[in-house]
């Protein structure tokens, strides 16, 4: 029923999205990975940063300046969020593939699982946050989780859990999707 409006809204929605953060983040990451490749340095940490940063960019794209105007349209806010998400996630995954290609051959973390897990967690956090700060909170979650992962020693339980988004991304994504589904009416 709402598939047709969503399909028709895809193009104008993509025009309403600010692409400069994705382009900027992708450019910086490519340059850094090229440096890593040239210097033959390990780049797994860079890819972890890339996953969190791209997830943050994807979640940030949910910011819609016309939210108030569009609030009472029949196409619900969740459907509009999912449309925005799909529109940004596809290029973000393409950026991920490009980063994997550019990265030094020694790279082990090539799966987009962490990126998808962080994105799902960010969106879920946004959905469950107060509307006024939803996107800001959602976009900050991947950043904060990464910072936690990098700082908490891995030999404690919290440190172990902080690394789940990298080590077990699919269960993390599944839990986040569950939270997302539970909050779909919000």
């Amino acid at each position: 029923m709402t598939i047709t409006p969503l399909a028709q809204a895809a193009r104008p929605t993509s025009r309403s999205i600010r692409w400069s953060p994705l382009v900027g983040v992708a450019a910086v990451l490519v340059i850094v990975l090229l440096v890593a490749r040239t210097a033959q340095r390990p780049s797994d940490v860079v890819m972890a940063i890339a996953a969190a940063a791209l997830a943050s960019v994807v979640v940030a794209s949910l910011h819609d300046p016309a939210t108030d105007l569009l609030a009472p349209v029949p196409v619900s806010v969740m459907q509009r969020r999912l449309l925005r998400l799909a529109l940004v996630l596809v290029p973000a995954l393409l950026v991920w593939v490009a980063l994997v290609v550019v990265a030094p051959p020694s790279l082990e973390a090539t799966s987009p699982g962490p990126l998808l897990a962080m994105t799902a967690v960010g969106v879920a956090a946004g959905v469950w946050s107060p509307a006024r700060r939803a996107v800001l909170v959602g976009a900050s979650v991947p950043v904060l989780w990464f910072a936690l992962d990098m700082t908490v020693p891995s030999d404690v339980l919290l440190g172990d859990a902080a690394g789940w988004w990298r080590t077990d991304p699919w269960p993390v994504a599944a839990v986040a999707l569950g939270a997302l589904v539970a909050g779909r009416r919000r």
Binding site: P5, Q8, P12, R15, S16, P65, P74, V75
Partner: peptide, 20 residues
């Protein structure tokens, strides 16, 4: 709030799409 980069017609048509 409206999308600054849209034309007037594009903006209204966009809302029309979302009004099914």
């Amino acid at each position: 709030s409206l999308y600054g980069g849209f034309t007037v017609l594009e903006m209204v048509e966009y809302v029309a799409v979302l009004k099914e």
